[in-house]
Design a protein around this nucleic acid. Sequence first.
RNA 1: GGAGAGGUGGCCGAGUGGCUUAAGGCGGCGGUUUGCUAAACCGUUGUACGGUCAAAAGCUGUACCCAGGGUUCGAAUCCCUGCCUCUCCGCCA
Length: 425
Amino acid sequence: MLDLGFVRANLELVRQKMRERGLPDILGDFEALDAERRKQLSEAEALKARRNKASDEIARLKKQKQDASALIAEMKQAGLEIQALDEQAKASDDKLREVLRNVPNIPHATVPLGRGAQDNQEVRRWGQPREFDFEPKAHWDLGPELGILDFERAAKIAGARFAVYFGVGAKLERSLANFMLDVHTREHGYTEVLPPFIVNSASLYGTGQLPKFTEDLFKLEGSDYWLIPTAEVPVTNLYRDEVLEAERLPVKHCAWTACFRSEAGSYGKDTRGIIRQHQFQKVELVKFTSPETSYEELESLTRDAEAILQRLELPYRVVALSTGDLGFSSAKTYDLEVWLPSSREYKEISSCSNFEAFQARRANLRFRNGKTGKAELLHTLNGSGLAVGRTWVAILENYQQSDGSVVVPEALRPYLDGMEKISRR
RNA sequence: GGAGAGGUGGCCGAGUGGCUUAAGGCGGCGGUUUGCUAAACCGUUGUACGGUCAAAAGCUGUACCCAGGGUUCGAAUCCCUGCCUCUCCGCCA
């Protein structure tokens, strides 16, 4: 959420930035709503001030055994007026907040202007896509042929967009998660967190999934519980309504979790394979920083995620999302895209974002500024480090051999009991 | 699942309708004293949204004692609902 006072003072700037996002009318009649709200608030507060004074007077009169009935009668009337004014003010406030809640974050000045994904800018590439002397297979063929991936049985026990991993397939997934967590905790300074995979709606509101994106989530019937769509939600909300000491910053967490997404509205997209599933695993990186350092921290967080791809020797590129493709809560996002030989294209495997104070304002995440002594809003960042399932796919496809076997990347071998190659048993 | 006890500021903790502008303590910040440290003493103390102001500071108003309703001229205090925590019992990986 943007700051009410900031929007009021910079209305034209905000309107301009929303046009850049392709949302020219998102602010609606903000000015009129704001003016109305302030007028009603002032009136109600003036009347309350009078009532507070009168209450003191009543107490004094009663103490002195004098008659206060006239004043009491007057205040009874005032009470009714206050109630009416409060209701009006509440209604205006609700309307204004509704508008504000649905306004996305302001893109950072360095975000490329554009209408959508086609205007995203490639920042850098790493590694050379391998030249195959045979026709590389897609993972949805390779996996089942190796006997490590099964879609039919997944459909039987759950439905579409689910997968079952067998044997080395399951172990590869587990090894990848361990490998990622080890690198981030040992070498990049992140503290591991294992949070609940279920959260309440307040947490989803804090990170910006609610109220706008209900459709993308799984809700548990008859409760206020939701399956997490990403570890970002529980981890970012860890310090909700807290004030962190400045010396602790930046706070860096990594978390392995399952993630659950309804994928409503993505019918027909990535229907084959395990690119887009209702349930997948992800190692997430989350940072809480001071406002001054958040953009440096975005760069290093992105590098931390890239390090995993480099160790696995998977070719990738880094893309800066354009204003038209930026997520709701994000001020700036780099996507990491890994090379997939079967489709001959780079596919998203990580998304690293700086949310500035947007989530912090919603979740009331603050730190104590050493200089001013005041509690100020933190900046929050997160990025996948990485999506485990998509990494699994990238390994199968990039390391496949002409005989259908898959070479295990060297960095991963210690996690697979030294196994060098995955072959059909 | 059953029974009971609770939820007060950064923390501890008092507070059963107006004397609370939330006592007292701890911590933090500023100061006095001091060779240094400690102690003692004095002062100070949160958040949000308004008003005033070119802006900031300041001043000022309102709200906030888990959350949401209610009773009342007036609620931290009384009533209702919900959430959470703790204790005991039962069940359970």
